[in-house]
Computed example of a mutant assay.
Amino acid sequence: TPDEFYVFKPTLKQGFKSIILKNLGRKTKKYIYAKMRGLKEVNVLKKDQLKFSLTGEEIMILAKWACQIEEHYQIPQDIEWAKDGKTGQLFIVQSRPETVHAPKEVRFYEEYQVKTAKKPILTGIAIGNRIGQGRVHVISDISKIGEFKNGEVLVTRMTDPDWVSIFPLASGIITDEGGKTCHAAIVSRELGIPCIIGTKKGSYVLKNGQEITVDCTQGLNGRIFLGKIPFKIKRYDLKKIPDLKTKIMINIGAPEIAFKTSFLPNKGVGLARIEFILAEKSEFIH
């Protein structure tokens, strides 16, 4: 699971150092060049696991490059970068249009609601805001994707472009590794498939044939339940909501659901629970 860095674009463009959040990922394995040929996987030293992959200066450089690329193409971009392991030099290796969060007209708003006292068997990072249900199909090797059936939940360690052909068949996707910008996350967002990544042990805990529920309705907190948990889907036609004299504003306290909430008809944020954000992201000394 990679490190995460958040940079605030408006103040970045004004020349300020605008890093607002850094989350340390789980980096227990890495690939190095093998002596003979190819790559081999090795363990990462504990002291290196506790280091961020980028310095503050490098984060700012990449953020500025991203803004320049976005301004050039005049559309939000999905950008990949690399860092030379010997020289430390940064490179942009790919840029393509970002199709999920790019501005577009939203006519309908869907709200998935699930209520249960049952404890999840696994948790991870939720991608999207939907719920999926189906039978588990653990696939450990790309050579076995031909066995995957329509409506099953794909469970694997991690995916790459070779797996895309079975994504449209899946009612949900679960991976052991990955972050919000990994392959499984990007493709799942575009296809609207409930996906939970970074479960650490999903492919070991879950067994073929188990009925499960993949719940992505709780912000970034993805939950996986054994069995089919009842849920409801509310669908609103935003064109049919009447104009009101009273300004309806949003009460929000979780940054991860701010984008989803923005599609509700609203006149802005009436109350932002800043104390929740500070309590979660800051360390206080009493």
Rank of each mutant, 00 (worst) to 15 (best):
T11R: 10
L54E: 04
K40W: 00
K207C: 02
G85V: 10
W65E: 13
L62G: 02
I252E: 04
T28A: 12
L278I: 10
S262K: 11
F16M: 13
I248G: 08
I69K: 08
V155K: 02
I92K: 05
N23A: 03
L271P: 07
E280Y: 08
G227D: 14
A34F: 01
F148T: 06
I212N: 06
K228V: 10
G253M: 14
R96Y: 04
S140G: 12
K115D: 15
K35A: 02
K239D: 15
T175Y: 00
D3H: 09
K9Q: 01
V106I: 15
E98I: 02
G134Q: 12
Y112L: 07
P161H: 01
I92V: 11
P2H: 13
K240G: 12
E41I: 09
S171D: 05
F231C: 10
T217K: 07
V114G: 06
Q77P: 02
T116Q: 03
D78W: 00
K207Q: 12
L50G: 12
K51D: 08
V269I: 15
T116V: 08
P2I: 00
I32A: 00
I173A: 04
R26I: 15
K245E: 15
F167G: 13
Y236C: 12
T28E: 14
V187P: 01
K17H: 06
T28S: 14
T156K: 02
T55E: 01
A254E: 10
M60W: 03
I277A: 14
L191F: 10
G134M: 10
I32Y: 00
G146A: 13
P161T: 01
I277E: 11
P103C: 10
Y109T: 12
R135M: 10
L244E: 13
S282P: 00
T213Q: 10
V164L: 11
K9T: 11
D176Y: 04
W163F: 04
K232N: 13
P265V: 14
K40P: 05
I173P: 00
I196M: 07
G128N: 07
Y73N: 09
L220G: 05
R135F: 09
D78R: 14
R130H: 14
D160Y: 02
D162R: 11
R26C: 05
G222P: 12
Q74F: 04
P230W: 11
T261E: 06
T156A: 08
N129Q: 07
K86I: 14
V44P: 15
F263S: 14
R37M: 03
S188Q: 03
G25R: 08
P120T: 05
T213E: 07
S95Q: 06
H183Y: 07
K40S: 04
E283G: 11
E110K: 15
F5C: 03
S18M: 04
P97W: 07
P103V: 10
I241L: 09
G209R: 06
E80H: 06
